[in-house]
């Protein structure tokens, strides 16, 4: 059994903990989305980003591509920054690149990508192909997708970060898989980000990973905040509870997002959508009042009982 004894906290971890606890919300200007700081740098990120799994995999469908452009345009108009994708997401990368080119490559973009190949030697070529699809000079964040060959990829990503070819390094998992291994990486590797699934019903990350991220000064990206839409389809049959108004929520999507991003360890969530109306609903969850710990418990309890 591997020992999980922690080393004394580093300056970065102390900074990260301070960011997470003392400065949980940073609201730069009225109407701007709420932000959280990346523990390893202090850079502020809006708490709602944009995922691209399924929704941006539109191939050569010109109408769907045009719709994605409008979603990305609305995302930046609403103050969004982080867009997340992966080579695993089919044509999502070229769709993002097309959209960014169409709207003039906004400087606010925080590009989050993944490397997803079992052979570590092929990682750099895949990253370069992804970069070409996006049309960016470099990625802000490069993550090892679903821990695939992380032992081979991470050293190379750290080298790229040191050389200024990346700004942050992370790892991802989804659907609650391989949490023990994720924990091991979080304890032993100087990663900046971890991406995991967390929502009103899937709360396993609360047990170990989220507290560990706070402790180690690792930013957390939440994927599947709606369980790929299944959670919202399930909740749509029920009226919003009275407490939704207390946190300025008009839709279940906002309830789900506010629950995810109000955990003190979470930096941002990355819901995916192909509709501008839904994008605006999602971005509205980055504004207004957030639930406190007591209300978060009630939210989870009430939703589980539905």
């Amino acid at each position: 059994m591997q020992s999980h004894r922690l080393a004394p906290p580093t300056r970065r971890q102390v900074l990260g903990a301070a960011c997470a606890l003392a400065l949980p919300w940073v609201d730069a200007r009225a109407g701007a989305p709420l932000t959280r700081r990346i523990p390893s740098s202090g850079e502020a990120l809006p708490v709602v980003g944009l995922g691209s799994w399924i929704t941006f995999n539109v191939g050569g469908d010109t109408a769907a591509r045009a719709a994605c452009v409008e979603v990305v345009r609305a995302f930046f108009a609403e103050g969004g920054r982080m867009i997340d994708s992966s080579p695993m997401y089919g044509s999502s990368q070229p769709t993002i690149g097309f959209a960014l080119a169409q709207i003039g490559r906004p400087s606010a973009l925080f590009s989050a990508e993944k490397v997803w190949v079992g052979d570590g030697a092929r990682g750099p070529a895949q990253i370069e192909a992804s970069r070409a699809h996006w049309g960016v000079s470099r990625f802000d964040l490069m993550q090892v997708h679903n821990l695939l060959a992380w032992q081979e990829h991470l050293p190379r990503l750290f080298e790229m970060k040191a050389a200024g070819q990346l700004r942050y390094v992370g790892i991802t998992t989804s659907e609650g898989r391989r949490h023990a291994e994720i924990e091991q990486v979080m304890r032993t590797q100087p990663i900046d980000f971890v991406q995991l699934s967390y929502n009103l019903l899937d709360r396993e990350a609360e047990q170990r990973l989220l507290p560990l991220a706070q402790q180690r000064g690792i930013a957390v990206i939440v994927n599947r905040p709606f369980r790929e839409g299944a959670l919202l389809r399930q909740l749509a049959r029920h009226p919003l509870p009275a407490w939704a108004a207390e946190i300025d929520c008009s839709y279940w999507a906002q309830v789900a997002l506010k629950f995810a991003v109000s955990h003190p360890a979470v930096t941002c969530a990355i819901p995916a959508t192909s509709q501008v109306a839904h994008l605006r609903q999602n971005m509205a969850a980055a504004r207004g009042r957030m639930p406190d710990a007591a209300l978060r418990s009630r939210m989870a309890r009430d939703v589980a009982a539905l």
Partner: peptide, 14 residues
């Protein structure tokens, strides 16, 4: 994966 509407539209294009 991809959205069902995108999949079915492949046949429309075809």
């Amino acid at each position: 994966m991809f959205a069902p509407r995108i999949y079915w539209r492949l046949f429309e294009s075809l």
